[in-house]
Amino acid sequence: MDFISGAWAVMKKDILEEYRARYAFNTTLLFCVTCLVMVSYSLGGAVTDPMLQSAMLWVILFFSAMTGLSRAFIKEEDKGTMNTLRLCCRADHVFYGKTAMNFLMMSSVIVIVAPLFIILLNVNMRHVGYFALTTALATVGLSAVSALLSAIVAQARARGMLFPVLAFPALMPVFLTAVRATGMSLAEAAPWTGGGELVFLAAYAVAATVGGGFLFEYVFSEQ
């Protein structure tokens, strides 16, 4: 109960800040929509292969996440509030609060971007449930890893450049699997029979959230 209330305190504070400043959400959403429109204009209906469509969606989501999610701790460090977090919060509360906030933000962006993706790229979404589960699981992994990496790069100087460089290898497995699983949800064949992709995404999500929680303690207290 103590854990949930501590993590919720951090998440609620971030929601209020984001609601008033609207920096990360607007940046992420704008990036996604701009990219989708550009891809749609440049390729039109030329791309019909489900795997290519899926890859395009995840490239856009991945880079938009790099823009928005990196700010989770960078903004705390820039505003001088990181010490306030250290003084008042337990490390695990901060990590899970920030991960939950990242998840909420990316999910909100995907809820808006996914219909646009279907309309603008003329996508035939055949297995909506599979697609929803794929994006949900991939977003959990993406959110947890981004929270951890954001805390690491917040203490460095070349933050903007460092975050994608660190995130790229860490998120590559989830990115490639999400592309494959999303492609399967657009294809005609029933995707549920295989199931390996979803199992991998679920395992990655669990490993990222649990492992991130353990590692975060060292990053948070390091000065």
Binding site: G6, A9, V10, K13, E17, K79, G80, T81, T84, L87
Partner: peptide
């Protein structure tokens, strides 16, 4: 955490939140 209070230039509070919201966050976080 519940026994120490710090007021220092390096310990900032949240500009987007009101004093009421800042105090609510600090007590919940602790």
């Amino acid at each position: 955490r519940n026994s120490i209070g710090v007021c220092a230039p390096d310990v900032a509070l949240y500009d987007e939140l009101s004093p009421e919201e800042n105090l609510d966050f600090l007590s919940r976080a602790r």
